[in-house]
Design a protein around this nucleic acid. Structure first.
Lengths: 224, 224
DNA sequence: ACGGAAATTAAGGCTTTTTTAAGACTTTTT
DNA sequence: AAAAAGTCTTAAAAAAGCCTTAATTTCCGT
């Protein structure tokens, strides 16, 4: 069963979360501060992190950033309604999803399930299709209609990532983590260049369709 | 529990599948030919179809096509040869996934699970709705009816803020704090400009409704 | 009708993205 | 082992998009 790390300083909420998730069958570990959380994260492998934004010592935002410099663990952020950190910044820093306190328990569980499944799902799928583009994940080959679409490894990985959740907006950090793994944090522009190449390769074979959409100031997603 | 239709003419594989899936707890129905399969599909509602490509009478491909003209049921195709050309056609014809025979039982079960979950997972969305305007907070998208409402980052944040508490009047300072964070106190007019742009973008798609109301000397709120 | 508040418009400046090209690096071929 | 082909990253300039400012007009309440 999935291993979840809860990072929450409020005693009441902490034990509530602990109880709910344990009951649900998850293997749960609790941390009461940012530094404690980072310690655990470095030592163990979690499938998901549940992170309160308001923490003593290191803020949740800092934890999020530091954490994602090392490991790409799906993270659901809990925010109070009047928090100054905007949603956009959160997602930029690597959050996968967020919930506003006070939150509905059922909704939390659904969100957790979705995050956990997201990972599995990408494992088991053999092909991805979006408009005229098809990626065969077994053979690492792309097609547009019947014509082969020759993509390099990185290009393939980026497009695959976007096509796995065609509606989701991926920030550049998201893509880095998914495609490069944690080993490298280079220039943001690297991704821009790859995206540009993917677009032009696709456009050569299918000039009348738009595929990758820029979401200004945020990232990229597939066009609806 | 999910209802699955198996379409396979080979007696040996047929009973094997039947056994595995029944044991797994699925409600299973078996068909030995394409025509038989179509009959069942018309009469019952299945959550998933497991379809062999090589069938007597109607081919699997034909079944797939005919079937998807009526109902969109997730379909995993079993193919004997790893024929790439037909794979692509398969997915085009509506297959959700494919497996090459001989297949690993565990893998089959995972694929089935993934397909079944895919359907549930789609509702994990958090959105704000006000009259005809809908904001998808996770995907940073706005809609008016079915038409996309393209908003910039700031515009989106402002409208989101107002729509979160449609009855509350937000002063310009309120909005600054929510949208910009406290780091910046610029001209009050900046907000007026943004509001103006939001209004005109909305009005272009829905001219007959008022959305943002001015509360004189105080700020803004959504129109009742 | 007046003064203050809000709306609108246009323009400049700023940030982000796109594109291009070149060099470094990898992999494949000979 | 060297050459060739292909790929990735960096850098820099061009383009596009967005935000703010400023100036003007319109609106509201008294």
């Amino acid at each position: 069963m999935a291993k979840i790390l809860i990072v929450e300083d409020d005693n009441h909420i902490h034990s509530l979360l602990l109880e709910i998730l344990t009951q649900e069958g998850y293997e749960v570990q609790g941390a009461y501060s940012g530094t404690e959380a980072l310690l655990y994260i470095n030592q163990n492998d979690y499938d998901l992190v549940l992170l309160d934004l308001m923490l003593p010592g290191k803020s949740g935002m800092e934890v999020l950033t530091e954490m994602h410099e090392k490991k790409a663990i799906p993270t659901i952020v809990l925010t109070a309604i009047d928090n100054k950190e905007s949603t956009i910044e959160l997602l930029r820093a690597g959050a996968s999803d967020y919930l506003t306190k006070p939150f509905n328990t059922g909704e939390l569980l659904v969100r957790i399930e979705v995050q956990l499944r997201q990972q599995e799902a990408s494992y088991a799928k053999s092909t991805l299709v979006f408009k005229n583009v098809l990626l065969d994940l077994h053979q690492f080959e792309g097609f547009i209609g019947d014509h082969p679409l020759s993509l390099s490894k990185r290009e393939f990985a980026i497009l695959k990532c976007l096509m796995e959740n065609p509606k989701r907006v991926y920030t550049k950090n998201n893509l880095y983590q998914q495609v490069w793994g944690d080993e490298f944090y280079g220039d943001e522009n690297t991704i821009n260049v790859h995206i540009s190449k993917i677009r032009s390769k696709i456009a050569k074979l299918d000039p009348n369709n738009e595929y990758i959409q820029t979401v200004w100031g945020i990232g990229f997603k597939m066009v609806e």
